[in-house]
């Protein structure tokens, strides 16, 4: 289900550790609306429950995000995917990969798990149609060997959704 790169990743650096601890505390103090961090003792992989925003296509639906942090977080973006089943969305592949620029080229170290979650929720909320991306089957087939979405060269479909 999850990529093999997650298994081979290196332990968090001191900076990453520090930063994630702070993020977790901040999250506990004020979690982003609609999200729930499932408590684990693993700082390097967070599993987050997403509730579709009311009044949107995904209202009353619950999905799970899996966030894996690289050694040099926040200089590198975390790997964020939906666990099965992934929501039906033009930018979300059936294997859970998400086509969202801030997770890849547009990552900035000032971003946080919280801000990523808010971006993903807004992406879901602004969708007008529940469907897979056009190239879903081809992409998913290419990723069968457990490739990380971060190894994909993305071109971003549109900025509206």
């Amino acid at each position: 289900m999850t990529s093999s790169s997650a298994a081979s990743r290196k332990a968090l650096s001191k900076i990453a550790c520090n930063r994630l601890q702070k993020e977790l505390v901040e999250w506990q103090v004020s979690p982003p609306a609609g999200f729930k961090h499932k408590p684990t003792d693993n700082l390097q992989r967070w599993v987050i429950e997403v509730n579709g925003a009311p009044g949107t296509l995904y209202a009353n639906e619950t999905y799970q995000l899996q966030v894996d942090f690289p050694e040099h977080y926040p200089m590198e973006a975390p790997q964020v995917i939906f666990l099965h089943p992934a929501p039906l969305h033009p930018h979300i592949y059936s294997n859970g990969h998400i086509c969202l620029d801030i997770l890849y080229d547009s990552w900035s170290p000032a971003m946080t798990v919280s801000s990523i979650c808010i971006s993903i929720l807004s992406m879901l909320s602004s969708s007008t149609v529940k469907q897979r991306p056009e190239d879903n089957d081809r992409y998913v087939k290419n990723c069968r060997n457990g490739r990380s979405p971060k190894e994909t060269r993305w071109w971003f479909h549109d900025d509206k959704v």
Partner: peptide
Amino acid sequence: EKFITGMLTNF
């Protein structure tokens, strides 16, 4: 305190 109330909200 906030952390604890957050935790209790969750747990």
